[in-house]
Design a protein around this nucleic acid. Structure first.
Lengths: 111, 111
DNA sequence: CCTAGATACCTTGACAGACACAGTATAACG
DNA sequence: CGTTATACTGTGTCTGTCAAGGTATCTAGG
């Protein structure tokens, strides 16, 4: 991973929720998708990913079911809930605000 | 604080380093400055701030000295080191990259 | 047939940053 | 003389991330 994980910290849940907006998905696929989108600059570590699933399910933002694959490894699919969708929206808003604040606080003034 | 602290996590050091670029400063002043700049939307908790100072000093990014105030509470002033300046620059670069990655990963596609 | 690699998931334990809470001390103001 | 503002410090806790290990299935190559 090329960028420090602390900068991504706190975004894991939002990243997952975003991936589930379009359609149900499962851990491995979400992670592959993240790697492709970022050209390998970022990947969720498995432990991080699956512990995020647990957290999100416990707080009711996603729900899950086992896929009915007759072949290959089993997959646990996740669905975003209504509450998950509104948390996603709020996180997007928060992120836009945070971005501004951080920029303001760390950018060098030119004078 | 209006935004969740996890979004700011990892930026504390950079925020402090940035404040020390212009001139030496001390904890209380830095925090006041942050609150003013963000119109109270963000403040570093004292424990966070002072433990960051300790961390930064241990890793040689800043150095410190006691002010010679003859009146009022004592102040510990901090100075950014050369190494601190280059870490600051790197953090700025990292942040710009992280911003793009996060945006790409959490923004809803319109189709 | 056997093995390596890709797919897919899970658990445990440790770490580090942020914070709540508590404490210390000085000066100004009514 | 008590409150508020200034200014710093220490202890202990919480939470997200990750390293490291494990399980199981399918595919392709030798």
């Amino acid at each position: 991973m090329s960028i420090t994980s602390d900068l991504l910290r706190g975004h894991t849940d939002t990243i997952i929720l975003k991936h589930l907006l379009k359609n149900d998905s499962y851990g491995y696929e979400i992670n592959k998708s993240i790697q492709e989108k970022t050209q390998g600059r970022y990947e969720l570590k498995e432990a991080t990913l699956y512990s995020a699933f647990r957290r999100l399910e416990e707080t009711g933002l996603i729900s899950s079911y086992w896929g009915d694959e007759t072949t290959g490894a089993r997959r646990r699919y996740y669905t975003i809930t209504g509450s998950g969708k509104s948390v996603y929206s709020k996180n997007l808003t928060d992120w836009n605000e945070a971005k501004e604040i951080i920029d303001e606080l760390i950018k060098e003034e030119c004078k």
